[in-house]
Design a protein around this nucleic acid. Structure first.
Lengths: 130, 130
DNA sequence: GCAAGTAGGACTTTTTTAGTCCTATATAAC
DNA sequence: GTTATATAGGACTAAAAAAGTCCTACTTGC
């Protein structure tokens, strides 16, 4: 469907929230304000932390904060942190192996297309979402 | 997952096949040569015909042929003909209505991203797949 | 100690995509 | 005019992916 997953959508919303307030926020705050499932967002935040986009502090008065400036976080990176695959076809994936590989006639051109898509996704950052 | 569906992938392969040979071909020929399910490809060809990309002739010695020159068929068009939705998020769709619309804070920027994606998809044509 | 947080495993449900099966209709060749 | 070879298309099933839920553990400031 050529669509960003809800995970990425919610991730972007959360990062925008943090960039906007410039402060630490809890998952509960963000999920409430943006009508996002708490449990789902909690996982997303964990993944973003694992990727180094966020830091966290546990316990009372804990929460998540940005590790990077908004202009240093391209949409690209959020996609990479939150989705298993981000290639536009199986044959442009580095991890999967395409079932039609032996007869695939579009591999080369698809790689070019993929590169251009990545170019677009890396040119937009969280700073542009504000 | 930000991935083109198999329908689009197969559609591109089929169009490439027709452009390469410059002749009419049957679904069977194309599906055999490219290891694509016959039934699935048959539906795809019908959709591409409905969209005006292909013409067909029924009966013995029938088949499908290109209605347009390869350089007149952008990937964009193939996506449009073969997929229900092609927007990157729910909020950039014209037909769906986003469940989080009232609180959505990324609608504007997402539209810009969407436009850039479409730009890329419309800049590559079947002629470039040869 | 307790309330407010993150960490994360396991699971269910829903949605989408891919693929299959079957029947009808058109037509060129014989 | 019958037959073999095509497209046309409805209805269905299966598989995969995404979304969402539930539960428990661990951390930490007060």
């Amino acid at each position: 469907m050529l669509r960003l997953s809800k995970r990425v959508e919610y991730g972007l919303v959360a990062l925008q929230h943090l960039a906007k307030t410039g402060d630490v926020a809890t998952v509960r705050e963000i999920s409430d304000e943006n009508s996002i499932s708490y449990d789902l967002l909690a996982k997303i935040m964990q993944d973003l932390k694992r990727d180094g986009v966020l830091y966290s502090s546990q316990g009372v008065r804990g929460g998540y904060g940005l590790m990077l400036a908004p202009q240093e976080i391209p949409v690209n990176r959020v996609v990479g942190a939150l989705e298993e695959q981000s290639s536009i076809t199986e044959c442009t994936s580095e991890t999967e192996c395409c079932s039609r590989e032996a007869v695939c006639t579009i591999k080369g051109p698809m790689h070019k297309l993929q590169e251009q898509m990545e170019q677009v996704l890396s040119s937009v950052t969280i700073a542009q979402l504000l």
